Amino acid sequence: MKILIIEDEQNISSFVERGLNISGYETEVCGDGLQAWEKLQTVAFDLIIVDIMMPFMSGLELCKAYRQKFGYATPIILLTALSTTEDIVKGLNSGADDYITKPFKLAELEARIKALLRRSGINPEKQNDDFLQFSDLTLNIHTKQAIRDGKTIHLTAKEYLLLEFFMQNPNRVLSRRTLLENVWDMNFDTNTNIVDVYVNYIRNKIQPEGTSKLIHTVIGLGYILKEE
């Protein structure tokens, strides 16, 4: 479950990010509207939280632009210090689904997030069972597809099993023997290079040009899934 937080006040963005991370959501933070707009061109989010008063591109402008280009599938919550009826109507008319006025309690924000996600057909309580997440890479255990940089990555059955095992064991060095025993469920000759071949297959798929490296070789030991 991936949420974009767009807020130029660092104390507020840190407060929201920390609270949502503790609750199991993956978050990214942008400090101004223009940076967020550029991010939204390439990365898909399940929900967007945006402050109205933003530098370079206001929350209302971003909301209108997002709806015109990407439609209404992704819920948007506006954060605002403006609480008059006119301000709220402007926010909702720009395409927002809900708003919350500052100052607010994290519990209220989380309740609104859950309500909007359910309305969108997503059960927030079940997301951790449906997806594996590492950095900006998501693995859907039902469709057997990966998503990175907003793009769907199609995997063969064995590629999926190998990537799934890596994502179930992040930041841990996995030997070739461990991968053979858990992914192939067979005792291959230890001289086989089948692990190296399949690691290269999934590397080429999940690490296209311009993205950071996730699967690293540990010389003499095996491989590790970690951020650069």
Rank of each mutant, 00 (worst) to 15 (best):
D51Y: 01
M53W: 00
M54C: 05
M54A: 04
M54D: 03
P55Q: 07
M57F: 08
M57G: 00
G59Q: 06
E61W: 04
E61V: 02
E61Q: 15
L62D: 00
C63S: 15
K64L: 11
K64T: 14
A65D: 14
A65F: 03
A65T: 01
Q68I: 03
K69Q: 15
K69T: 05
F70T: 06
F70H: 14
G71E: 06
Y72F: 13
Y72H: 13
A73C: 02
A73F: 07
T74Y: 08
P75Y: 01
I76G: 04
I77M: 07
L78W: 12
L78R: 09
L79G: 04
L79H: 00
T80K: 09
T80V: 05
T80N: 10
A81V: 11
L82K: 15
S83E: 13
T84A: 08
T85A: 13
E86G: 04
E86R: 13
E86A: 15
D87C: 06
D87R: 09
D87H: 09
V89C: 05
V89H: 07
G91Q: 06
G91S: 06
N93W: 00
G95R: 01
A96F: 00
A96N: 06
A96P: 01
D97G: 05
D97C: 04
D97M: 05
I100F: 03
T101G: 02
P103F: 07
F104R: 10
F104D: 09
F104G: 05
K105R: 15
K105C: 00
L106S: 01
A107S: 10
E108T: 10
E108L: 10
E110H: 08
I113M: 14
I113A: 02
I113Y: 10
I113D: 08
K114F: 06
K114I: 07
A115V: 08
A115R: 14
L116R: 10
L117A: 04
R118S: 07
S120A: 14
S120T: 02
S120P: 08
N123L: 11
E125R: 08
E125K: 13
K126H: 09
K126G: 01
Q127A: 07
D129Q: 13
D129C: 07
D130R: 15
Q133I: 14
Q133D: 00
S135I: 00
L137Q: 01
T138E: 07
T138K: 05
N140F: 07
Q145Y: 07
A146H: 05
I147D: 03
R148S: 12
R148T: 12
D149H: 14
G150H: 03
K151H: 09
H154G: 00
L155C: 06
T156H: 12
T156C: 02
A157C: 04
A157R: 14
A157M: 11
K158V: 15
K158D: 09
E159R: 05
E159Y: 03
Y160C: 10
Y160P: 09
L162Y: 08
F165I: 03
M167W: 00
M167Q: 10
M167D: 03
N169D: 10
P170V: 08
P170Q: 05
P170Y: 06
V173L: 03
V173F: 05
V173P: 08
L174T: 03
S175H: 08
R177K: 15
R177D: 14
T178A: 14
L179E: 01
L179K: 03
E181R: 13
N187K: 14
T190G: 03
T190S: 14
N191T: 14
T192H: 04
T192Q: 02
